[in-house]
Nucleic acid binder design. Sequence first.
DNA 1: TCTGGGGTCCTAGGACCC
DNA 2: TCTGGGGTCCTAGGACCC
Length: 431
Amino acid sequence: MFALVDGNNFYVSCERAFRPSLKRHPVVVLSNNDGCAISRSNEAKELGIKMGQPWFECRELAEVYGVVALSANFTLYGDMSDRMMCTAAGLGHNQEIYSIDECFVDMAGIRGDLTRRAQTMRTRILQHTGIPTGIGIAPTKTLAKLANHVAKSADRKPGSYPAELARVCNLGALPASDLDAVLAATEVGDVWGVGRRISKQLAAAGITNALQFAQLDPATVRRRWSVVLERTVRELQGQSCIRLEDAPPPKQEIAHTRSFGRPVRGLDDLIQAVTEFAARAASKLRRQSSLAGQVCVFIHTSPFRPPPHYSRSTSVPLRRPTANTQDLVHAAVLGLRAIYRPGFDYIKAGVMLLDLNDDSVEQLELQLDAAPDQGGELMAAMDRINDRFGRGTITLASAGTRRAERTWVLRQQLLTPAYTTSWDALPVAKA
DNA sequence: TCTGGGGTCCTAGGACCC
DNA sequence: TCTGGGGTCCTAGGACCC
């Protein structure tokens, strides 16, 4: 039996935990550059503000109704998530943290009334963190997701499902006929794994609710769509096909990409952005003890603006896999110079690290051929400083278009003289 | 004026090999 | 003259997730 614990309107709930005056007010949290609404309180949802909706589209309406709009504070949300996950882990023996606001818990081997246990856990999470949650329980992960959807909908929209399924919904405890009724009341597009495209195709075939979908023949679904969708059908039928991943595998790619607040034209500005993106990605890479074999960089103009449009990406292979910021930045800038065309208003850029593998192999090679230190100590020092004093305390800079060499720049305003002194002792500071 | 930032998995098709 | 077919690897693109 799987449980899915999901924080309601997570970012908004995090903000409310520290500002109780926001309760019962319509609140939205906005993405970077205050571009889109990425979390909405129930009150904001009722006003019709959609997930991912551009803020400029709803601003007028929001002003009329006094919607409070907040810029996202992802550091805060990460901390709140850690707390919520620690508490939620007590629900069973194994936990998979699926996203910042959701986790699966394997409840196999837990005796007693699972529904009551989940209700107790819900109260405890609320007390520990101030975050309201919904908990769904079912024999497969897809059904647990669906149960969670029921738990939240029954709470928020009375009448959508039986009221006793609100907040905690245990589909495993339901008689078959009741389960069918729940599936029949669920739109097929609300099933985990069925997105917009496929729901449209299913609708064309007369399949609009989850019960009809669950009654399809898996082999037919595989032939007509894919093995992925076949698995979804089987899971809805109660056959568990997706295992709990309690020890998440290391990432296969690491990206850092951003939209700019306003259009960027010059190569120098793009180099500056790409340098920062590559450095951020490199730091994530070291955190999971991996090395990258390739650096991909992309730039593009806004698809929402009139032409001319320009969009290109390129991959730069590295001579040997590395996690060194300097090497990764160098490769990213090299790629950028290759794809850059003057005369366009660029709105977004990004750096992706690909071909990732474990750094232990590289360590072995280093020992074998006694290669010079690739800056490992320096990188570790940078990471420690940034962990301690905040991201961006120390960064790598790239020279602009006129000078080819790179320079190190220290942002010293956050460093005390003592730390500056010890930093000066490091060989790189003279570079 | 103003439109997020990450990820994963699968498939199709081409290149290449035997 | 006649010119196979299966396996593997890689890449691009699609679809999905939060």
